[in-house]
């Protein structure tokens, strides 16, 4: 059984090294959750899990970006002090001048995931590493009201890719450069158990077939999702034209597996994740692109 390691931010200065056996230590990485720099969560596990679930579809800075579906296969830790092997010189003892950085190796998701993750390049965020037991690692910080909150480690993201060299498989290299406050954040680290798998969203879009008719596809891979969602797509409020108005009618034909829009000569896009989730279409969000069906 896994027990959360309590934060040591309120512990004494003495070091007690003859501790009992603690089962919780970072297991193999399952991945991570990216949040806005200002995003904080409850330290109460049940509330934390509710906030995580609602964060997947939340708007603006409250949106979270999980990558926990087995895409991450490994990660390498870098950083720390200047090493002699890197620079030709180095300190005799640890001085902690450099911040820690880790590189997650992502073998699944291909160029579609790469393109999505690259949007984070250079952005300062918070990273919540998660291991294969669903333990989320973060830090405790007091907010302006003096209430202790759980949040990820502050970091800057840079995403690049490793080409398939012939002898080595291609991969996304997700570099996380922890901030200058990492030492304090790590001293205050804590864990919370994720109650269930959290998955990110798939961007979806309309694809015109003939005049006034369309299918729903995955925006990057182009996979046809029309039949998957079926009649659930026949809800006018799930679409909006460039003037911000829903179509008067949308129909789904099970025989032809496509959607018909009235008025047919307009440009439409699918709604945001919250609207789609409320209609039973979970895990997807319409990308911000109008498709002309005329």
């Amino acid at each position: 059984m896994i027990y959360p390691i309590k934060t040591n931010c309120k512990s004494e200065e003495k070091v007690y090294t003859k501790t009992g056996q603690c089962a919780a230590f970072e297991n193999r990485p399952a991945g991570f959750i990216i949040t806005d720099e200002s995003k904080e969560f409850s330290l109460v596990e049940e509330t934390f899990n509710t906030e995580i679930q609602s964060g997947v579809t939340a708007a603006g800075g409250n949106r979270i970006y999980p990558l926990l579906s087995g895409q991450v296969t490994d990660y390498q830790v870098n950083g720390g002090d200047v090493k002699t092997s890197q620079e030709g010189f180095g300190p005799e003892e640890p001085v902690g001048l450099n911040n820690k950085s880790v590189v997650y190796i992502i073998n699944k998701g291909g160029l579609c995931l790469y393109r999505e993750l690259k949007k984070l390049n250079g952005r300062t965020v918070r990273v919540i590493p998660v291991d294969i037991n669903g333990i989320a690692f973060g830090t405790v910080k007091s907010n302006v009201a003096g209430v202790d909150k759980f949040c990820g480690f502050q970091a800057t993201i840079w995403v690049t890719r490793r080409e398939n060299t012939g002898s080595q498989q291609g991969a996304i290299l997700f570099s996380v450069y922890f901030g200058s406050n990492y030492e304090n954040e790590d001293s205050n680290f804590t864990t919370l158990q994720l109650a269930k798998l959290v998955e990110g969203l798939t961007g979806i879009a309309l694809k015109k077939t003939t005049s006034g008719k369309a299918k729903v596809i995955s925006a990057c891979s182009g996979d046809d999702l029309t039949e998957t969602f079926g009649a659930d797509l026949a809800v006018a409020g799930l679409y909006v034209n460039s003037a911000g108005t829903a179509p008067s009618s949308v129909s789904y034909n099970t025989a032809t597996q496509d959607l018909s829009f009235t008025p047919s000569s307009a440009s439409y896009k699918l709604a945001d994740a919250q609207t789609l989730t409320a209609a039973g279409l979970e895990g997807v969000e319409g990308i911000n692109e109008y498709v002309n069906l005329a």
Partner: peptide
């Protein structure tokens, strides 16, 4: 209000608000 009706193989969804905006 978004209402849904099925006629044969076709399921229709209508938006009363959009209809009000476009039609008399």
């Amino acid at each position: 209000m978004n209402s849904q009706y099925t006629i044969g193989a076709i399921t229709f969804g209508f938006s009363a608000e959009s209809i009000r905006q476009r039609y008399k």
